[in-house]
Amino acid sequence: MKLDLSFIWTALLQLLTAIPTTLAVTGVSVVCGLAIGTVVALIRINRVPVLNAAAAAYVTFIRGTPMLTHLLLVYFGLPFVIDAICESFGWPFRSVSIPMIGFAYIAFSITAGAYLSEVVRSGLLAVDKGQIEAAYSVGMTTSQAIRRIVFPQAFAILLPNLSNSTISMLHGSTLVFTVSVVDINAKSQIIASSNWKFFEAYIAAAVLYWGLTFLIERVTAMAEKRFQMYNRGGVS
């Protein structure tokens, strides 16, 4: 067997069409996950009765099970639930009209939410308690203090961890091939098997994933610079 270098390039060009799918799955899961994670983190930090136990159970269950399992559970379980609900309310909607990628969005948002809740929680806990006390002392309400004082500082702190999670979700998004969504990885399999050039196709996929990861790293570095501007001085 000889390595067909030029086919790597051919495969790479064909894989470009799958980038939007990969980015969509990663982006949606990280953005929704961040929203879920923030709510969960706030519930856990403030020890909201009842919800706190539910939030803790969610985090431990999701982190304790593989991402692929989440996807399969949602893919095979959610249609039953949706159809049952729609039927009982007499709505004409049925789960078959949900696109496959919708299940990936939902499943991976749930996955990312659990991991990101811990990321957000660590960021919130790292903000000095004196900051919220100062906010109270100038007469802010709790929600004003959290929105205007705590969140911006927590976000600057959690950026490196967020970048880490985003990269994990990018690489995890390869699992969507199991529910017949064609992302970069699935596309490389198709290209590989239809040309009998497996190694070349997978090299092309690897290069693409590396490139996207590099992009995430750069964007994070820029964001860090922007959001941690206030830390520039010598003394803290």
């Binding site: 000095d128 004196g130 900051q131 006390e133 100062a134 906010a135 002392s137 004082i149 911006p152 500082q153 600057a156 206030y230 830390n231």
Partner: peptide, 10 residues
């Protein structure tokens, strides 16, 4: 405050 507690990001 004793530790000033200025809003660090402002």
């Amino acid at each position: 405050f004793q530790q000033y507690n200025l809003f660090r990001h402002k």
